[in-house]
Design a protein around this nucleic acid. Sequence first.
DNA 1: GTCTATACATCGATAGAC
DNA 2: GTCTATCGATGTATAGAC
Lengths: 194, 194
Amino acid sequence: MADSVAKRREEKIAGIVACAWTLAQEDGIAGVSLHGLARAVGMRQPSLYVYFDSKHALYDAMFADGNRQLLEHLDAVTFSPEPREALKQWLHTFAAFGSENTELYQLLFHRPIPGFTPSPESYALAEKVLGDAYTLMRAAGLTEQGDMDCIVAITAGVTDAQISNDPGGDRWLRHLNRLVDLLADDAIARGRTQ
Amino acid sequence: MADSVAKRREEKIAGIVACAWTLAQEDGIAGVSLHGLARAVGMRQPSLYVYFDSKHALYDAMFADGNRQLLEHLDAVTFSPEPREALKQWLHTFAAFGSENTELYQLLFHRPIPGFTPSPESYALAEKVLGDAYTLMRAAGLTEQGDMDCIVAITAGVTDAQISNDPGGDRWLRHLNRLVDLLADDAIARGRTQ
DNA sequence: GTCTATACATCGATAGAC
DNA sequence: GTCTATCGATGTATAGAC
């Protein structure tokens, strides 16, 4: 094929990014060095510049890849036809994935690299995640921005608490459904009395 | 006085730590360098070792100082005699202080320095903060650990969302009281039907 | 496309004069 | 207690041979 060269290059980049995630899991996102990453994929540090113009370009590729992983993971789940149930399942899937992929979650939602801002193309993927969440919330009857903000804060709070205080467990995750139900019931009751 | 030497030393250390917070606000906690900090307080980098045995010792002093600032700030507020109201006031004061002192909040609750663990003496201050929160929750009728975990997650989620998405505003903070009321009402209703 | 070699910067930490 | 000088490690990035 005419694009086999480009394809092999894309696959190589994907392999490097995957390896970078492994290193990030050990030493944190900021702990990934180009020397270490190059050695881990069997090359020397300057050779990485064939695939990434700078270290920020590597972070940008990881940011985009992390969002793609998250979207694929959410896409692979079959959700209930009942909107409230589907929302709870989506949020729980999101929080569980974040708890199990802490470095990915931190790069996507905590911006731990000073000076790094995702490119517009990469950021569009992050906005798709949030947009999907908003769509499910509206389907479940949450129309006020304030209510949706509450859902976002609750989900992030549960995920972060799970990561920080009980890694690998479910001490905080198991309360997410209850909290979402509480907020959704209250939001809908408010809407009725307005 | 016989302790005037020790006192001047303590004051100098306090000044250095205060200056470190200022630098952290500009470049992040991890961006504080001993060279930069020394210059900012009018000395050279090796002289800092007179006051701190290592960089981790500096972080430990900042961790302890941050908890002391937080405790003092909470101590200066007069809370309602009504337990539920007092709890909401305390949590809102906590979240607002965290939102306004983001680097302090991150050092205390997000552990952004790989390899840094607070000393037991410093950590005791952090446990006092959490202990105060638990005391207020119990007074407000929240006795189950799961309910208290929910309050912790909600408060942290609101604070983090405020810092990340609307620095300086109150888009997320303003929902904290409502969320705490929702959870507390539900927890107490649960308790009654058990 | 990968390599060696190196430039250049930053950082934490230590030695030793004053 | 503060300084100069320096070590040693680490890091990103570039130049140029192959």
